[in-house]
Design a protein around this nucleic acid. Sequence first.
DNA 1: ACGTGTGAATGGATTCACAGCC
DNA 2: GGCTGTGAATCCATTCACACGT
Lengths: 230, 230
Amino acid sequence: MSEILSAGSIEGVVRKDVPERVISRLPIYLQAVETIAAIGQTTVSSETLAAQSGVSPAILRKDLSQLGRSGRRGVGYSAQDLAATLRSFLGLDRAQNVAIIGAGRLGSALADYAGFQRRGLRLTAIFDSDEGKVGTTIGDLTVSAIADLATWADPIDLVVMAVPASAAPAAARIAAEAGVRGILNFAPTVLDTPETVRVQQVDLASELQVLAYYSALETATATPVEEHSN
Amino acid sequence: MSEILSAGSIEGVVRKDVPERVISRLPIYLQAVETIAAIGQTTVSSETLAAQSGVSPAILRKDLSQLGRSGRRGVGYSAQDLAATLRSFLGLDRAQNVAIIGAGRLGSALADYAGFQRRGLRLTAIFDSDEGKVGTTIGDLTVSAIADLATWADPIDLVVMAVPASAAPAAARIAAEAGVRGILNFAPTVLDTPETVRVQQVDLASELQVLAYYSALETATATPVEEHSN
DNA sequence: ACGTGTGAATGGATTCACAGCC
DNA sequence: GGCTGTGAATCCATTCACACGT
């Protein structure tokens, strides 16, 4: 039934309708296969790669089969080819321009942190609304006024939002108007943006609270009765 | 299969077997209902709360019904009661002790960032393996040697791991041995820990790469042939 | 013989729609 | 009349198991 539903073809890679769940695992596979390639391994089996990625071999094969066939039966996947396919599929072969909004402690930390460049992303600007911070430098970037984002010369694809919750909606609106395509939001606020802008939420407290639940759960169950676990 | 999945009762709140998906949404509801309560609203409907949380009303009702009934038909949910129920269910009524491992830029930023205290979490320690950093202060905490974690007096429930990928596995092992129950891992590495330690992964690059996919997808479908903008 | 690719089967999660209570 | 709580239906995701290429 599912023929090709939506198809933009871009540099030879056909993008079918792939569920978000699958997409969100691809960067992990990419990370894993890159480390494997770095060790000098030329091929890798679904079993090994799945273990490195923390998923089951079956789901890894099913996921990868959706990007067009990339493995060889009886052999495995070519590490080089698979990495290239994943990068291409994720749209990383021409580096995405990333800007950070918020030059506070978190923003500056994120600017350093993570091999942006090594992972197909190019950090091109940092913005802040605080006049005092504009003009200071972080790494090799100069902080710009957030108002300048609207008329920024080099088009910005993605934004990392590292501002307080109160400032986030306004910043998001400016970003959306500037044609930004995605926002990674560290502020604990649901941003409502136009359809064209995708928002990915990262909330430190929420994630810790999930862990807190399991922590408290274990404490509670550990005490009462012995549990015949396997 | 396993029938007694888990049933620890803790301060009156019965913890049934609730799927992880549901658990991961509860902190968002909590955040939303707290802001609503802060404005002085005393009750809230599933429709409003769902909109604030970015989910459908149906799923919100189903989620909340799993914590025992807490809403009134024809009226909605009491903001105060619901917040209390959620906090209790998540194990936040006695604050969880949180430690940060890694006193680099990210670690120090995270130490400031987020109203830990206000959200049921108590940041009690920061560790680093760098001798040079031990003894320095961040906020009102003094950085300790990571070796001290093993014999730390005040038991630590959760750890935020803000170290380079190469240092993460060793740090995780120390944390696990110290009886830590959960790790929020900012390093792009799959940590394999004993059953007792839950790991939640936060990978900046992966999340951006997911956004990159949709960014490139839009670009491809929106401008089929022409590619040079600006 | 090995390991991918994939239909079929299973298992969950979300949505629907309405009964039941305020 | 309004809004929750919840079975039933639908939709989606994962696992199984094996045919097929190398």
